[in-house]
């Protein structure tokens, strides 16, 4: 280990080591290892079906996994999901997973954590629509509004250290995508974000560090400019079509 390694470890908020996940007979994650530095947004990129969502779910303990996940240096793999979350991890799932039968206000109230400073001011500043629609059932909201609820839940507790955000712009209109990007930029000022994003222009705009997965393994880690600035490298790791659309 080099002398710089301990210092680097100290700056890591999240350290994933040799994460393996099986779903049925499929070996989805095969020894995934990477770190997420404190502050800013780290992108978790890769083609469809390479294990990005499973990685986030593995970090949270929502799928059975082996390996090690250190949060601020503390091992979390033996903890239940709710205990991991209470250590300052927030999750914005790919399909938003708002509680359709609950109102917007109830969705937010459910996310409140005892003892945590609540940031309703920030949430309603970022998403004023949610305050206006507080009494509306979340299931009747548009996709963009549901994404706002999902992000708001993650931002609500002031003691969240890291947000795991899974494809927040998926299926949204360009105007809403811009809104979500602004919200994530603002969120990155107060918490670390691990972002799964298929929209490479959005990823390029937001992230600094990049982890690329390919067939359940890490195929690249480094600076986003290093990856995006080299078309051959980007094509190799992210696929021709993806780079072409970027």
């Amino acid at each position: 280990m080099s002398a710089a390694a301990p210092a680097a470890a100290a700056t890591m908020l999240l350290d994933v080591r040799d994460l393996d996940v099986y779903i049925g007979e499929s070996h989805i994650l095969q020894g995934v290892s990477f770190g997420v530095r404190r502050g800013g947004i780290t992108g978790l990129l890769g083609r469809n079906g390479v294990g990005k969502t499973t990685t986030l779910r593995g970090i949270l303990g929502l799928v059975p996994r082996t390996g090690s996940v250190l949060l601020g240096g503390d091992e979390t793999t033996r903890l239940a999901t709710h205990e991991i979350v209470r250590r300052g991890v927030a999750y914005v799932p790919e399909d938003r997973d708002v509680f359709a039968g609950l109102t917007v206000e109830e969705n937010l109230r459910l996310a409140e954590r005892a003892g945590a400073p609540l940031r309703y001011d920030l949430v309603y500043e970022l998403f004023p629509e949610l305050e206006q629609r507080a009494a509306q059932k979340a299931g009747t909201l548009s996709g963009g509004q549901q994404q706002m609820v999902a992000l708001a839940r993650a931002l609500l507790n002031g003691d969240n250290r890291i947000l795991l955000v899974d494809e927040p712009t998926k299926g949204l209109a360009p105007l809403v995508v811009r809104h979500v990007v602004e919200a994530l930029q603002r969120a990155a000022e107060i918490a670390t974000i691990l972002l799964v994003e298929q929209n490479l222009s959005v990823a390029h705009k937001l992230v600094k560090d990049v982890v690329v997965l390919d067939q359940g393994r890490v195929s690249f880690t480094g600076d986003v400019e290093q990856l995006m600035g080299d078309p051959a490298l980007a094509r190799r790791h992210l696929g021709l079509a993806a780079v072409g659309s970027h």
Binding site: H82, V85, Y91, P93, D97, L110, A111
Partner: peptide, 8 residues
Amino acid sequence: AMVQALGI
């Protein structure tokens, strides 16, 4: 699962 993912 989402309830657990909210720390409950």
